[in-house]
Design a protein around this nucleic acid. Sequence first.
DNA 1: CTGACGATTCGATTATCATCGAACCATGGA
DNA 2: TCCATGGTTCGATGATAATCGAATCGTCAG
Lengths: 110, 110
Amino acid sequence: MEMKKTVNCLAALAQETRLAVFRLLVQAGPEGLCAGDIGARLRVAPATLSFHLAQLANAGLVQARQQSRFIFYSANFDAMNGIVGFLTENCCGGKPCPPAKAKRKKTATS
Amino acid sequence: MEMKKTVNCLAALAQETRLAVFRLLVQAGPEGLCAGDIGARLRVAPATLSFHLAQLANAGLVQARQQSRFIFYSANFDAMNGIVGFLTENCCGGKPCPPAKAKRKKTATS
DNA sequence: CTGACGATTCGATTATCATCGAACCATGGA
DNA sequence: TCCATGGTTCGATGATAATCGAATCGTCAG
């Protein structure tokens, strides 16, 4: 993953609604959720949501899959790992960057 | 690290110049680099660089330290880990998110 | 085909961001 | 003190982002 692509992914995630959408999709797993459900849960207007989903898809963070009349969106875990990889390798390459914090388990707060 | 803060950090990193600055600072280690050096290496005008450094500092990703006439900037590794933590915990919490790619560290499969 | 509904696209509006010259502030040396 | 130099702040400008109503497209049921 090079710089430009990383910037795109970070930009896609650097917005409250989109970050929320992405997290929701990750929690939803590979099946994903259809656009309507996402909008309903996050209280986002259809047009606005579509705009954000397009951004996420364009960054390669989510993918769309049509199923009957619904369009399901699911998170792209590879892209996600790519970002973390870039941040931890290219940014912290070799250094004792991670101070091995306590790994707190977070209960899924829906 | 909660949502708002994460969005701020991501937004700070979601810009080519700032991401380059941040990476440079991480590579420079705890000592950091003075503003002039950063600008010289990245070919960024003083005013522009100052603007970006302020954004990074505001997001808590870098810190400034005055040393004589120079101002040294250094990366905040904790913040960095916070982002990765948020992305990997809250977003991939529990799931088999990392497909364990070619990232072979000394983690023996033992 | 027609109607209904899920979702996207278009268009306009408003807000925020990135850039850089010029002016300014701060530190250290003479 | 005065000056040179490292950095920042101010102000203006052009570019990009976010939002949402209205119109449109696509799919399915009848």
